[in-house]
C-alpha cells in the first residue's frame, strides 16, 4: 500500500512518541542539567530541553513542553536518539536529522533510530520548524555548555 502524504507525516512511530513520550519531565532543581527553552511564536510550540553531559558524552536528555504532535514527538525521539552518544556524534546526528526533514537522503551509516521516520515532514514545509525545535534546543544546550567551560 502506498502511503499518502499525511500517512508519511503522521507515521505510527511518531504518534506513539507523541502519546507515550520517553524521557519526559524535567527536574528543575537538578543542577547537573543545562536547560534551554525554545518557542515557535507563530504556532505556540514551546519546548524545554535539559541536557546532561559528562566526559564528552550525552548522559541524559529530558524534555517537556506543549505543542503539536510533530514537535512533542520529535523531542521524545531526539532524546532517545542522542542519549549515550558522544557530543560529537550527537551533533552529527542532529545535522543529519535536519537533512532528513528537508527531504534529503539520510546518511545510512548513522544510527538515527526512530528519527528516520520524519522524512514525511518534507512534504509539509510549514512543519519543518515543528520537527526541528527540540533538536535546535539540544544544539543550543551543547553550545552553551561548551561556552561556559
Amino acid at each position: 500500500m502506498e502511503f499518502s502524504n499525511l500517512q508519511s507525516l503522521y507515521r505510527q512511530v511518531i504518534m506513539d512518541h507523541y502519546k507515550n513520550p520517553r524521557n519526559k519531565g524535567i527536574d528543575k532543581n537538578n543542577t547537573e542539567y543545562h536547560t534551554v527553552h525554545l518557542k515557535n511564536p507563530t504556532c505556540g510550540d514551546d519546548v524545554t530541553v535539559a541536557v546532561k553531559i559528562s566526559n564528552g558524552v550525552v548522559e541524559d536528555i529530558r524534555h517537556e513542553g506543549i505543542g503539536c504532535s510533530i514537535c512533542c514527538s520529535s523531542a521524545s525521539v531526539m532524546s532517545e536518539t542522542l542519549i549515550e552518544k558522544s557530543v560529537e556524534e550527537a551533533n552529527i546526528l542532529t545535522n543529519n536529522f535536519y537533512e532528513i526533514v528537508k527531504g534529503e537522503a539520510p546518511n545510512e551509516d548513522l544510527d538515527m533510530g526512530d528519527a528516520i521516520s520524519y522524512a514525511g515532514v518534507a512534504s509539509f514545509p510549514a512543519r519543518i520548524k515543528c520537527a526541528t525545535i527540540p533538536w535546535k534546543a539540544f544544539e543550543t544546550a551543547v553550545l552553551e555548555i561548551n561556552s561556559q567551560k
Binding site: 502524504n5 499525511l6 507525516l9 505556540g44 505543542g67 503539536c68 510533530i70 509539509f124 515543528c130
Partner: peptide, 12 residues
C-alpha cells in the same frame, strides 16, 4: 488535536 496538526490535514 493540536491546531497545527489539523492545519496539515486541511493543507492536504
Amino acid at each position: 488535536v493540536h491546531p497545527h496538526d489539523m492545519a496539515s490535514v486541511y493543507d492536504n
